[in-house]
């Protein structure tokens, strides 16, 4: 009993310390900014910036290879946040910010082909073959990948309508602009 517990404990300790020393020598210096930038991006991997996904875009941003205005779905808010974090000045007048948008299905012309469901990075579209699809508003990040694949143009980007449920007073700072 003692022998078996002891031998396992000694083995574990030895192997653990070997790994600990190895991790010291083999440590990879990851850019801590990269993870932080990635958290600021929408994370829907839509690829509109020209990079494969948000991780690659964040890496390019950290190296200074990409402009902070690269993310169309992120809009002004993301560009501002990225610029503040990286300490660069940015001309926000060129960023077209249509306000937050989400995809919407025009139900009269949806043929239920399921193509939009397959490309949605956040699984925000529900439906089945030959059934009208619909968008779950809470899950849509507005990357507009579905708009391109829709064969009948039933999908479009709509500004999020202000409803009684989520209307708020404008903040004093933004009221100035």
């Amino acid at each position: 009993m003692l022998m078996s517990v002891g031998s396992l404990a000694v083995m574990g300790l030895t192997l653990g310390s070997v790994l600990g020393v190895a991790s010291r020598y083999l440590a990879v210096e990851a850019d801590p900014i990269e993870a932080e930038l990635q958290a600021m991006l929408p994370g829907s991997q839509c690829g509109q910036c020209g990079y494969v996904g948000c991780a690659q875009a964040a890496a390019a941003l950290a190296k200074g290879e990409a402009a902070v205005t690269l993310c169309p779905p992120g809009g002004k808010a993301t560009a501002e946040a990225l610029a503040a974090r990286l300490g660069v000045k940015v001309d926000l007048s060129k960023v077209s910010d249509k306000g937050p948008e989400i995809a919407e299905v025009t139900e009269e012309i949806c043929i239920g082909c399921c193509r939009c469901m397959k490309v949605c990075p956040t699984d925000a579209i529900v439906g089945a073959a030959k059934q009208i699809h619909n968008v779950i508003r809470e899950a849509c990040t507005g990357c507009s990948s579905c708009v391109e694949v829709c064969p009948t143009e039933a999908l479009g980007m709509m500004p999020i309508a202000v409803t009684l449920q989520h209307w708020t007073w404008p903040k004093p700072a933004s009221a100035h602009h």
């Binding site: 078996s4 396992l8 083995m11 192997l15 653990g16 070997v18 790994l19 083999l26 990879v28």
Partner: peptide, 26 residues
């Protein structure tokens, strides 16, 4: 301690894999 064979072997294998992973990452 033959009855500990599977556990100890897995322990050794897991450490070797961890080491390999660190090396490849580097």
């Amino acid at each position: 301690l033959g009855f500990l064979r599977t556990v100890t072997f897995i322990l050794v294998i897991a450490s070797a894999v961890q080491f390999t992973e660190m090396t490849i990452k580097k």
